[in-house]
């Protein structure tokens, strides 16, 4: 049986010059190419459905090494494309069509939304801001010998209450911090805080947010972040970027 192929779409953008990306390797190993539809250009590559078909994906998405390799390659292609245009709408991981024609049909269907998204992200980049609650020193009162079981239990309860209260306060501060940064961005999006098992940090994450920032105003945004560092000494703020505008190219159309 001859293996079937599909068209993997990385992103759609304006004013993309095919020459610049020629020779770039896409997911699954074949070369990245471009297909045009109206004034839009889709960055695509051909994939083997033996690896990227629905049944295969079901299997492969369970293999973390495969997911990582595919995600990193996808990201690399999107970043290279983002570097040569101001307006690029990245697609989700593993967006695959039966053929180039099918991809163009979908782009036509999404045309109005894609134009809106491209206008929104034009000359802007995504910045990730993650906030961690700094570890607090534990009061040494717990060291004193327990005089009685009742006293011990009361103290334990008070400790738990204090800890919960402190966590609530930290969360409130992180929320405030988010709103302090909002004026510096054209759009914002809050992602679910990452689990401690995934971050590998002892401190819990209180905020996982993305900010779409004008490229020409990114310095102002960093200044804003630095101001908040001073204002919220109990929080550890981690900024990362620039990212292609992944979080702001979301088409939630059925």
């Amino acid at each position: 049986m001859v293996s079937e192929s599909g068209t993997y779409v990385y992103a759609v953008g304006r004013n993309l010059d095919e020459e610049v990306l020629s020779g770039l390797e896409g997911v699954g190993g074949s070369s990245v190419r471009m297909i045009s539809h109206r004034e839009l250009t889709a960055v695509v590559s051909t994939v083997d459905l033996e690896e990227f078909g629905e049944a295969a994906l079901r299997r492969n998405l369970e293999v973390l090494a495969w997911v990582e390799e595919t995600a990193r390659r996808h990201d690399e292609v999107v970043r290279r494309a983002a570097a040569i245009t101001t307006a690029l709408a990245p697609f989700r991981l593993v967006t695959i069509y039966r053929s180039d024609d099918a991809a163009c049909d979908r782009i036509e269907e999404l045309y109005d939304d894609l134009v809106l998204v491209l206008d929104r992200v034009d000359r802007r980049s995504e910045w990730s801001v993650k906030v961690f609650c700094r570890a607090r020193s534990v009061p040494s009162a717990t060291v004193e010998a327990a005089s009685s079981g009742v006293a011990y239990l009361e103290r334990r309860r008070a400790e738990i209450r204090d800890r919960q209260q402190a966590a609530g306060e930290q969360q409130m501060l992180a929320d405030q911090l988010f709103w302090d940064l909002v004026p510096g961005a054209a759009a914002t999006r809050r992602l679910p805080p990452q689990d401690q098992k995934l971050t590998g940090r002892r401190e819990p994450m209180a905020l996982n947010a993305s900010f779409l920032v004008d490229d020409e105003h990114s310095t102002d945004f960093f200044e804003l972040v630095n101001e908040t560092r001073a204002r919220y000494p109990s929080l550890d703020i981690e900024v990362n970027g620039p990212w292609p505008p992944y979080s702001f190219a979301v088409l939630d159309k059925p």
């Binding site: 997911v67 990201d75 991981l93 992602l191 679910p192 996982n208 990362n240 979301v250």
Partner: peptide
């Protein structure tokens, strides 16, 4: 970028445990 940060964005759903 860390894989988690990347998947947070590429999947548009956040990474859950």
């Amino acid at each position: 970028p860390s894989l988690v940060d990347l998947l947070d964005r590429l999947l548009g759903k956040g990474v859950v445990v």
